[in-house]
């Protein structure tokens, strides 16, 4: 979300003051993916790469705004953790940012992985740590000026959910063995009911990551739309006096968004870990249906 203090944003808003639809279309523009990038140094048109078709699906590999922030988050994450890892290796007791990072790592390990997956889950710790920190960083990037939350795009969360899906199945197969895993898909009912049970069970496998995908996307987009709407009020009323109210709300919502950014990263990681843990225990399948956030 790059609207606070963005000259480009206010320009478009001024231009769109006529019709409300136009206003909201241009406001939503800042939440949506685009082939352009607003920076403090000007407007950048991102390259459009050729698309390719595989299995009847056309993949448009263009570098969009969200791809850029995907990479910005990745680069920041690698840089920060790399520096901290090197710094912490030199010290017996980490300090400052290294300490913060270590606290978060311990939190993911002791509060997410071990309660949900047991000590056997520690081998999946790198995946879950990467998920947590990557999502957290992408969420937070949406809160700085000129930034954007890649996680506010359903395709990005879908990509993360696909990886989560693969990891959940892999963890289950590795822990139970392929035969046991497939037997589990029948739900343990009489073979006559298999034509009903097996599709339901398979559907059940997909609903969990699907829920992960939608939850993260909706939370990040929702918060940004609230912010956009509050900012939009200023341009609808066009009054400095009235602007005070939306502006103060925006500040408050921004703090809420800061919390949501951390919370959603935690929830995504926690649920992925929970689903992996359920798959790792043979009898855990039914309990998984009762989750909700």
């Amino acid at each position: 979300m790059a609207f606070i203090g963005s000259p480009a944003a206010s320009d478009t808003l001024h231009a769109a003051h006529g019709a409300k639809e136009d206003l909201f279309a241009s406001l939503l523009h800042h939440v949506q993916d685009s082939h352009e990038l607003d920076t403090p140094f000007g407007h950048i048109v991102l390259p459009q790469l050729p698309s390719f078709t595989a299995g009847g699906i056309t993949f448009d590999m263009s570098i969009t705004k969200h791809v850029v922030f995907l990479w910005v988050a990745a680069a920041l994450l690698i840089l920060l953790t790399g520096i901290v890892a090197r710094r912490n290796a030199r010290r017996d007791v980490p300090r400052g940012f290294g300490n913060l990072l270590e606290v978060l790592i311990v939190f993911v390990r002791d509060e997410i992985v071990i309660p949900n997956m047991g000590t056997a889950g520690v081998k999946y710790l790198p995946y879950l740590l990467t998920t947590f920190f990557y999502i957290l960083l992408m969420n937070l990037l949406g809160l700085i000026p000129y930034g954007a939350s890649s996680t506010g795009n359903v395709n990005v969360t879908a990509g993360l959910a696909i990886i989560a899906f693969v990891m959940i199945q892999a963890a289950a197969i590795r822990a139970q063995g392929l035969k046991h895993y497939l037997a589990h898909l029948t739900g343990g009912v009489h073979w006559v009911l298999w034509p009903i049970m097996i599709p339901i069970e398979i559907l059940g496998l997909f609903t969990k990551p699907f829920a992960l995908c939608i939850r993260l996307f909706a939370n990040m987009t929702g918060g940004h739309i609230v912010l956009v709407s509050l900012i939009g009020l200023i341009f609808i009323f066009k009054s400095y006096i009235i602007a005070i109210a939306p502006a103060s709300f925006v500040v408050a919502i921004n703090f809420l968004e800061l919390f949501v950014a951390v919370l959603q990263a935690y929830i995504f990681t926690m649920l992925t870990s929970l689903f992996m843990g359920l798959g790792m225990q043979a009898e855990g399948h039914e309990a998984a249906e009762g989750h909700g956030h």
Binding site: D60, T64, L70, W71, V156, A158, G159, I162, I163
Partner: peptide, 11 residues
Amino acid sequence: PGLILWTVITF
């Protein structure tokens, strides 16, 4: 789908 693929690759 392109963005999904980018996400998976980047991740």
